[in-house]
Nucleic acid binder design. Structure first.
Lengths: 227, 227
DNA sequence: CAGTGGTCTAGACCACTCA
DNA sequence: GAGTGGTCTAGACCACTGG
């Protein structure tokens, strides 16, 4: 047995989702039907579905069924945006300015594996104060017509999925403290800023976004839980 | 059925571990024996053990058995210490200075739910340069004789478990960028520092440590993965 | 009410570890 | 070779959802 049966079911279902056969929000077959279709028992199909749920690919609801996970504004805000107020509630960013340009990929964009990229630059505020400065780079061929969609959704990952079928599954971030320079849009020179570098991967595992963010953390904090 | 059977098995086993009946590294009964003991089938005992493994409480090894997880230096360094070199490898801290005092709990120590606390202050270096300044507060009654154990282990959580049977299961952190002040032990005044506030919980869920850390991130970064 | 996922059982065989 | 966890099956009943 090269791969466990439940793993084969897992891979097949995942391929249907990433391949577009099953779109976000679509209902999957029930455990018995899926098992029959794949030539395995209900219990084996069930194990595959449970693993898919754990990976965040599907959502299971007793009495209703199993559905392909949809990236909602809430989910994007909760999972992939970590700034919190002192009381622990998520900070809500509001757009202040935004630009999207198309350009050739530079050396630093190499990991995106694309000749051309879109570069999004935006500044967002929290409770009325400019607090976030972001530069976002994505492969141009994966997001056709992106510049025509301005103003972009505040939650970019909802747009990625809704308009381009690209679901962000994982993001690796590296955080550093830096100092604001002359002309910084967020804070006066010398002020401390939290700099975050992100590499975001789609369900397929492909790197689809690189992001440099700077946060003014005078009134908020970046929250993480380690387990 | 108020609670699923597998959940009852889970709780019973967890209670045995937190209660000291099963110590770190101890081997659990196999799935059939555990099931028989609890009056459930092997499959149900198995499900409880899998959940315990997912929670990081036990480790299962095919052909060997199921064992209570031990906090090793590696685990502590990998899970609960997030500073990484640019190439992604963990930064290795080396002790420079350390002090442990006993004092009355102050208002800010309230969450620790203890009248007296130990406060550990230490400075550690990375690749020879002072890079971490930490203030750690724990309830005194949970860690009797802690000041006599100086110099403390570099990996405190290994000491917590080995000497006091307290295993850290979860840590909530909040990160901010701050500026070094006059006399800062890590960097010259005005330099940016990454400030991390941690609240660490034991397996039982009790808050057992509060920690304020400052990192010089000039040569390292704090790495996180969001999923 | 029919259909779904959630729990549980009893049993089988396989893969790995270690003496 | 004995003992362990890993996979898989077939079937049962329960709990929840929605028409």
């Amino acid at each position: 047995m090269p791969q466990p049966l439940y793993r084969q079911v897992y891979d097949t279902v995942l391929a249907r989702i990433t391949g577009g056969d099953l779109r976000a929000g679509a209902m999957l077959p029930n455990e018995f039907d899926l098992g029959a279709e794949m030539g395995v028992s209900q219990g084996t199909a069930r194990k595959a579905l449970i693993e898919l749920e754990r990976a965040g690919v599907v959502e299971r609801r007793q009495g209703r069924g199993t559905f392909v996970t949809t990236t909602t504004e809430d989910r994007a805000l909760f999972h992939f945006f970590r700034l919190r107020h002192p009381d622990g509630t998520p900070a809500i960013p509001e757009p202040l300015s935004e630009s999207v340009i198309r350009r050739r990929a530079r050396a630093e964009d190499r990991p995106l594996d694309s000749a051309h990229v879109f570069e999004i630059t935006r500044i967002r505020a929290i409770e009325g104060r400019p607090a976030m400065h972001e530069r976002i780079v994505v492969p141009a061929e994966l997001f056709p017509g992106l510049p025509d969609r301005t103003p972009l959704s505040n939650a970019l990952y909802v747009l990625y999925e809704g308009a381009y079928g690209i679901r962000i599954a994982r993001a690796d971030e590296t955080l550093r403290a830096v100092t604001a320079e002359e002309g910084d849009p967020l804070a006066s020179p010398g002020s401390p800023l939290l700099e975050v570098q992100r590499k975001a991967h789609a369900l397929t595992g492909r790197l689809v976004e690189m992001r440099w963010s700077q946060y003014d953390t005078a009134r908020t904090g970046y929250a993480v839980t380690l387990t």
